[in-house]
């Protein structure tokens, strides 16, 4: 039974890295390019966890988390914020939106996997 993860990042490289890091560990990976696209994917998918970037066009990570938390179907899905920004302000802002945890890029595969397993069990 594989764990499904939606990764939202506007950088194709990051999407590819996350996909590679998680697919090879047996996760079922779904990808989206920005917050808007992520919400579209969530229209017909309820992943076990979400990983999202902050700086993205159209709808940024904060707005995306806000929207996920407002939807009944998705409001309990754990969300890990994955970004190069690591200032306390940004973390506080993400927490306020309802982020579950925070991972700083560049990530190591084992750390990402462990953080995910921790929030999805």
């Amino acid at each position: 039974m594989s764990i499904s993860v939606l990764a939202v990042d506007d950088s194709r490289t990051m999407r590819d890295m996350i996909n590679l890091a998680l697919s090879s560990e047996g996760f079922e990976v779904h990808l989206a390019e920005d917050g808007e696209h992520g919400l579209e994917v969530l229209d017909d998918l309820a992943p076990d966890a979400i990983i999202t970037d902050i700086n993205m066009p159209r709808l940024d990570g904060f707005g995306f988390i806000d929207a996920v938390r407002l939807r009944d179907e998705t409001k309990t899905i754990p969300i890990l914020v994955l970004t190069t920004e690591s200032s306390p302000d940004l973390k506080a802002r993400a927490r306020l939106s309802g982020a579950t945890g925070w991972i700083v890029k560049p990530f190591a595969q084992d750390k990402l996997v462990r953080a995910l397993r921790m929030v999805v069990g």
Partner: peptide, 14 residues
């Protein structure tokens, strides 16, 4: 997850 769409390819990626 077992009853979800099982394809591991990215959902309508871009």
């Amino acid at each position: 997850p077992s009853t979800k769409r099982s394809e591991s390819k990215p959902a309508k990626a871009s």
